[in-house]
Design a binder for these strands. Sequence first.
DNA 1: GGTTGCGCCTGACGTAACGTGAGGGTTCAT
DNA 2: ATGAACCCTCACGTTACGTCAGGCGCAACC
Lengths: 250, 250
Amino acid sequence: MSLSVGQVSRLAGVTVRTLHHYDEVGLLCPGERTAAGYRRYTEADLIRLQQVLLYRELGFALEEIAVILDEPRADELTHLRRQHELLVRKSERLSEVIAAVERAMEARTMSVTLTPAERLEVFGGFRPEDHEAEVERRWGGGEQYEQSRRRVAAYTKADWLQLKAEAAAVLGDLVAVFEAGLPPDGQAAMEVAERHRGHISRWFYTCTYEIHRGLGELYVMDPRFTAYFDGQVPGLAAYFRLAITANARR
Amino acid sequence: MSLSVGQVSRLAGVTVRTLHHYDEVGLLCPGERTAAGYRRYTEADLIRLQQVLLYRELGFALEEIAVILDEPRADELTHLRRQHELLVRKSERLSEVIAAVERAMEARTMSVTLTPAERLEVFGGFRPEDHEAEVERRWGGGEQYEQSRRRVAAYTKADWLQLKAEAAAVLGDLVAVFEAGLPPDGQAAMEVAERHRGHISRWFYTCTYEIHRGLGELYVMDPRFTAYFDGQVPGLAAYFRLAITANARR
DNA sequence: GGTTGCGCCTGACGTAACGTGAGGGTTCAT
DNA sequence: ATGAACCCTCACGTTACGTCAGGCGCAACC
């Protein structure tokens, strides 16, 4: 009642070489061997193989899997629960990526050009965990972020068009004010900043003065934003930040 | 307005080395270089990077990605559509695995013995035909597996009744052939095996001779299957396996 | 009863997609 | 003008296998 390598490989959809490899590294050594040295896999081996393949699917390294599976206090149910948790998380992440691609398609079909920042913000969905943590820290516990995500997800093509147009108008005015040599804490600059705040509130999330000030700092601290603004006109990021803080102060 | 390797790496969540590597293999060569030899990534480069990372996430090899992206007749939207399709399919597959793990957990917590069919479902994520689907997914075909999956999901009670009736008929004929003392590699037995294969193909998934042989082996190796068949008539499991292999050989 | 074919074995080298320094220029703010 | 941060090019290391090569085990076939 045991299976050969070939039989197991066909059942599990892996190559014979893979099973040899797992034997070599001690991850899955068949319970028995025939007199001729043939590998014989027992039912327990099959269960373990199932666990191995699931953890592998989840992106664990083989060595990690060996450690996890050899924890003495973890039985099959523990592993199933853990795997379930991880699978669900992976599924959620995948949904985000899908949503991001859908947004990119929408933007593309209406030939709206996304800026690099937006493009890779969209892309943010499947960046490593550390970035997620950074986003959370930055965007204050994720409440605004969640709000923004929910609203943005429901946007139609027309919404996107209008959003883009509005943003471009605000940016254009900002550039104009900047190039006119007006002071960042002057009336005109502060008005643009205020309109920017309104724009964020209307399209993304409720943007308080406090948050707006945080954004202003982000624009000079974070190279991707700095690159974006200074890409329009050099020095614009710093100027805009001053305008935002001045506007927040009054 | 171009970005350095470090900026791009932070933006996209990949390492600098990865960007170097993509440059080395010609997958993503930055549009410009500074006088000092520094890489400068243009916006077009970022778009291409996005495509690369998405296809990579989908399991394509870098060389394949290069070929896909350099097809002259495919623009960004084409890629987005294709990626969306593949992502959705991947998500569905993941849902299946999750469901399988949930069923395994349920069975485990209630200490219910799994029926043979359920056992196969649990193994579902790793069955050969899934592997086939994986392979086909990579090469853009993959309609067949999806179809069968959708079909099973849409079965009504009447369908299930007919399925069971058909299975019972095949089993009945198998018992008859067996009890008549006919050889397992004879015409009659092989015909029953072939009908069994057709039954699987019609109701579940395309069952190749290869897969069918794997099933036959399972019937004698797995005690639950063996118990099921031998519960009908002792020795039936082994007999059926011989009939299946004989049928597969011709 | 030799041989043919298939499956299995053990090395051993190959490969993809980077990781990880080594050694050395570049840029920029202080 | 000097240190920190960033960039460059080799070049070898690593993971998880793929891919032969050379040879044994066994059931079948002539």
